[in-house]
């Protein structure tokens, strides 16, 4: 878990919506560059060449009306086509034609969600992400985690994005464009990656003091690996047998931890903080702020306010050194 190789956020993952957006950006930048050069050349020509009245009208009509109209018409359709392909709209005939016109082939389009499409609810919170997988349609309570999303390679996954406090924006630059999370609304985003990989996402709408420390990881992995992972996430935990881990389990209930956190299978059913049932399996702690190992876990429990000042988790200062180590070890063992 400690070794993470992340691609640059500027690199669009193959088969993702970000790839189409990145092509769109390239067309716009290159097109604007070419037009700029032509305009400068014409301005220099007009300044230095000998004046000749011939063809004035053609230049004005051609360069001033026909050219911008044609360019803008093409660009508008192209951006609409990209938008449709990324947003996974149902492909009607007219839309199909538009997409085909601009060379956006079926391979690149994000397919519209079918009844079998995996649905994941992502809820923005200050300052972390709650992630709920719908293993059974309509049931969001069996696999709940935080700050991490897994996708099966090559398959579209439908995200339902909302928030319980302020506006956030879900953004994984390598996979798709930004989609806002707005109180009282649910926005949709389809994510797909055609190659296995780990990507980093970031809240892209200022949401308060620790907005910069609100990140998440997205992992795309082969279908079978994904299913094993998801089944494990849905499992409850049991009271540990090992004496040291048991001391950690008891420390969890000695403190105020269960008031805010759920650990499925135990009496801890707090709702306001992240579900910790499988916290040991996550890449990061505190929403992409820290790597996840026993040292950072202990440091986060005892010093959450140093690391992310103002976040909802208080510094836990009631534990003896041994209890803190045991608690960190028990949480780390929940994989």
């Amino acid at each position: 878990m400690s070794e993470m190789r992340l691609p640059s956020a500027l690199h669009a993952a193959p088969g993702s919506g970000a790839e189409l957006l990145s092509e769109l950006g390239l067309v716009l930048y290159c097109g604007a560059g070419i037009i700029f050069i032509v305009v400068v050349a014409l301005a220099l020509h007009a300044t230095f060449a000998k004046p000749s009245p011939a063809g004035t009208r053609a230049w004005i009509v051609g360069g001033g009306i026909v050219f911008p109209l044609l360019t803008l018409f093409l660009l508008l359709n192209y951006t609409l086509a990209v938008g449709s392909a990324v947003a996974a709209l149902e492909s009607g005939t007219a839309l199909q034609l538009l997409l085909d016109c601009f060379g956006i082939d079926a391979q690149k389009r994000i397919p519209p969600p079918s009844p079998g499409t995996m649905r994941v609810h992502v809820i923005g919170k200050q300052w972390w992400w709650e992630v709920r997988y719908e293993i059974v349609r309509g049931d969001t309570s069996t696999a709940v985690l935080a700050n991490e999303l897994h996708l099966p390679v090559g398959e579209p996954v439908e995200l339902l994005l909302t928030t319980t406090d302020v506006i956030h924006s879900f953004w994984v630059p390598s996979l798709a464009g930004k989609v806002d999370m707005i109180p009282g609304r649910t926005n949709r985003l389809i994510l797909r990656a055609n190659t296995p990989g780990l990507y980093r996402g970031q809240c892209a709408e200022y949401c308060g003091g620790q907005h910069a420390l609100m990140a998440l990881y997205v992992k795309s992995q082969p279908r079978r690996e994904f299913e094993t992972w998801l089944q494990r996430q849905a499992r409850s935990v049991t009271r540990p047998d090992d004496a040291f881990l048991l001391a950690g389990y008891e420390a969890f209930f000695k403190g105020t931890c269960p008031d805010c956190h759920t650990v499925r299978g135990t009496p801890a059913t707090g709702k306001s903080g992240p579900d910790l049932t499988h916290v040991g399996s996550r890449y990061s702690l505190a929403a992409g702020t820290l790597r996840n190992h026993v040292g950072t876990m202990a440091g986060w429990i005892a010093g959450a306010q140093d690391i992310k000042p103002g976040n909802a988790m208080p510094d836990s200062e009631i534990y003896t050194g041994r209890e803190l180590r045991a608690l960190a070890a028990w949480l780390g063992s929940l994989e």
Binding site: S2, L290, R291, H293, G295, T296, A298, G299, W300, A302, G303, D306, I307
Partner: peptide, 21 residues
Amino acid sequence: VRLECGVCHVIPGIPGARGRV
């Protein structure tokens, strides 16, 4: 830096190492 010892310790020369644990 990699092990993030600064989560718990103030360590001169390590960016962000200002832990008080």
